[in-house]
Design a binder for these strands. Sequence first.
DNA 1: GCATTATGCAACCTGAGGGTTGCATATGTC
DNA 2: GACATATGCAACCCTCAGGTTGCATAATGC
Lengths: 106, 106
Amino acid sequence: MRAVEAVFDAVADPTRRVLLDRLRDRPGQSLGELAVGLPMSRQAVTKHLDTLRRVGLVRVRRAGRERLHDLDARPLEGIDDWLRPYAEAWDRRLEALRTHLEEDRP
Amino acid sequence: MRAVEAVFDAVADPTRRVLLDRLRDRPGQSLGELAVGLPMSRQAVTKHLDTLRRVGLVRVRRAGRERLHDLDARPLEGIDDWLRPYAEAWDRRLEALRTHLEEDRP
DNA sequence: GCATTATGCAACCTGAGGGTTGCATATGTC
DNA sequence: GACATATGCAACCCTCAGGTTGCATAATGC
């Protein structure tokens, strides 16, 4: 499976998006912390974090008996790349950006 | 299911992304045209186009015995909205854009 | 040492997504 | 009208993602 392919899959799940959002909001959270409030068992959360780790969106480090998680958003760029050609359908700022870049390189 | 939720699901499938790409490249294609080259039956393609239509990404119109399809990319904005807060991880142009907008409104 | 906490591991269950086949129906062409 | 073309519809199949439960193991606190 191509890399970007797997990233799309990973991000398609709402639970995993929540996990990413939480880690963006506060890095270094443990499995237990991340599982709080989610409507599923801790083991299920582990699986979700594993898929996120597999595609490089989450890094894991050990601290004593805890497993701490950090976000690495860079793989999301693949999604952005796919999305960009469609963006003119809604994003009028793109025009502003394009103009701006042209101003930089006359 | 919230709307953006369904859009994520729709876009997660590689076949459906190909269909969207094709329609962006050339609007108004029929079912038969869109099915060409895809490793599956025409009926399977119909199902994919139906899911895309359900989330508003594809519009369908009838022309004689043909069913023609058009892209409506606007629902993708929901994905972009989710993605944006992560973008600073890779997109250094964002900074340029921000600066530019501030210049506009001093 | 012992209880508690945080996590790992494995087997199992289930629904639905993505695919198929077979046949029906409408439109176009000659 | 007869034949070909483009699509619709329905039943069926199978894999696997996402969840569960049960138990094992490693750190920590007292």
